[in-house]
Computed example of a mutant assay.
Amino acid sequence: MSTENTITPLGGDVYEIDTRMAGHSGITAGYLILSDRPCLVEPGTSGSAPTVQRALTELGVGPADLATVVVTHIHLDHAGGVGDIARMYPQAEIVVHEKGARHLASPERLMRSARMVYGDLLDTLFGEMKPTDAARIRAVEETGVIDLGGGRQLRSHYSPGHAKHHVGLLDSLTGDLYVGDAAGVYIPETADVRPATPPPDFDLDTALASLDKFRALGAQRLLFAHYGPVDAVAETLERSAEELRIWVDAVRDAHGQGMDVDHAVAAVQERIAGRYKAYGPDADPELARKYEVLNGVASNVAGIMHSLDRLA
């Protein structure tokens, strides 16, 4: 496969890499910071590892050159390829939040849980996460610092709510904030923002507090794993919070009426009808299908229902 359409320069020695998750373009992005100590943020799925490797080779990063691989969290669309990339780049340190570190070293439990959710679709969407040598994993806590060389740093900021092992990452040189899934899913074709609230970790108050933390960081640009760069930082973070509240209110109403997940999904779809251009009557149906794979209503509703049950 050619790398011609997988690499987009973003300035500041940052390159967006389309990881071509499950063969889709524009669904999951990794980012290479081509600093003195090259750093890969979000390697993507196991199935994406060869695509990412080709892109790094095209950008001049060989097997001994990659200094660091950082994941915002350990969900398979972000971190499923860590073990593969670690083997391809044996000098790279792997950085992850402490709550996710053991799953990178021993991914069996994570894979069992994922297979229960996705069934046979798991292999098509993600592939199998390979274990990473525990000696190469550095766990960060509330904050952490990744040395990019030349005085440049990537600082991690613990940002749970979407997942209990989630961090945001701020580049000291560019002001880029890698938001993972904490600010939801950005659809560049339509500038829509949708929440990402899968089970089992979603919690509204925690997620909103993480968005407040992101606002306080004073980022110049948001870099979404799904998908791409966004310059309108304050407006986008506010929209992210607004969408979370709307979805949770809709599910809470359904939950209060004793609805099961299927009926709650229908109620939410009715409540959000017309909010997103990507899902409107004039939208490209393939675009809607692509994002439903990544960010399905049923998964989001199930995560919110789970959080309401936990509160109750």
Rank of each mutant, 00 (worst) to 15 (best):
A183L: 12
P200F: 03
P188W: 02
H162W: 14
S159A: 15
H165V: 07
D171C: 10
Y186I: 07
S159D: 10
L173W: 14
D181V: 11
A196I: 11
G184M: 04
P198V: 02
D192N: 07
G151N: 01
A183M: 03
V185E: 10
V193S: 08
P198K: 03
S172V: 08
D181F: 11
D171W: 00
S156W: 02
T197L: 09
S159Q: 04
T190S: 10
R194W: 11
G161Y: 00
G184S: 04
T197R: 03
H157S: 08
T174S: 09
S159G: 10
Y158H: 15
G168M: 15
S156A: 13
V179K: 01
R194A: 14
R152T: 05
S156R: 04
D171V: 09
R152K: 05
L169Q: 10
A182N: 14
T174D: 07
L173R: 14
L170K: 03
P198L: 09
A182M: 15
D181S: 13
A182Y: 11
G180M: 00
A182R: 12
G151S: 05
S156N: 08
S156Q: 08
L169H: 10
G168A: 15
V193R: 09
V167F: 10
D192S: 08
D201G: 06
G161A: 01
H165W: 10
H157L: 06
T197M: 13
G168Y: 13
S156P: 04
G168K: 13
V167L: 11
V185L: 06
A183P: 05
L177S: 05
A183F: 02
G180K: 01
Y178S: 08
L170I: 10
P200L: 11
H162N: 13
H166R: 09
A196G: 11
K164I: 14
G168L: 15
S156H: 07
P195T: 11
G168Q: 15
G175D: 08
H157Q: 07
A191R: 15
T197N: 04
I187S: 07
